[in-house]
């Protein structure tokens, strides 16, 4: 049937996962309430803090990212401006945008705040479902042991 073979075709040829330079990966959702430029900034920030985008590596330009993601140039510009304000990236006139030099201490701090944020989400979700603190910490322990 037509649909099946497109799916298998793409995996067989394996053109999807050819090893490439560690490229930035941004997946946009148009039905989430988070504005598009925040989604872009969040994912790039996570990839910088997570180390997938090392220091000094070149990011794709505002316009080529807009073209890739099929969004407006203003959206990507706003995302880059936000990241630049946070000191995660800096733009060298004419040469492009690079991941800024992160001092390790600042990086750890950033990661800590990321973890905190995620835990806060978990707590609010748990309260919604009516989980008590013990159940929550029990789950945390199980998850921690799994890794």
């Amino acid at each position: 049937m037509y649909i099946y073979d497109i799916y298998s075709m793409s995996t067989m040829t394996g053109d999807l996962d050819t090893p490439e330079t560690p490229r930035m990966r941004v997946i946009l959702s148009n039905s989430s309430s988070e504005p598009i430029y925040e989604q872009i900034a969040r994912q790039i920030r996570a990839q910088i803090i997570g180390g997938e985008l090392e220091e000094g590596s070149l990011l794709s330009s505002i316009r080529s990212l807009a073209r890739d993601l099929q969004v407006s140039v203003i959206t990507t510009k706003r995302a880059y401006e936000e990241l630049e304000r946070e000191g995660l990236i800096d733009t060298v006139g004419g040469k492009g945008t690079f991941v800024a030099a992160q001092n390790p201490q600042f990086l750890r701090e950033k990661r800590m705040s990321l973890v905190e944020e995620k835990l806060a989400d978990a707590v609010s979700e748990a309260r919604l479902v009516g989980l008590s603190l013990d159940d929550l910490s029990e789950m945390l322990r199980l998850l921690a042991e799994e890794e």
Binding site: P35, I36, I74
Partner: peptide, 8 residues
């Protein structure tokens, strides 16, 4: 104006 204002 910028379309993003409308959507965001």
């Amino acid at each position: 104006g910028p379309k993003d204002d409308l959507l965001d």
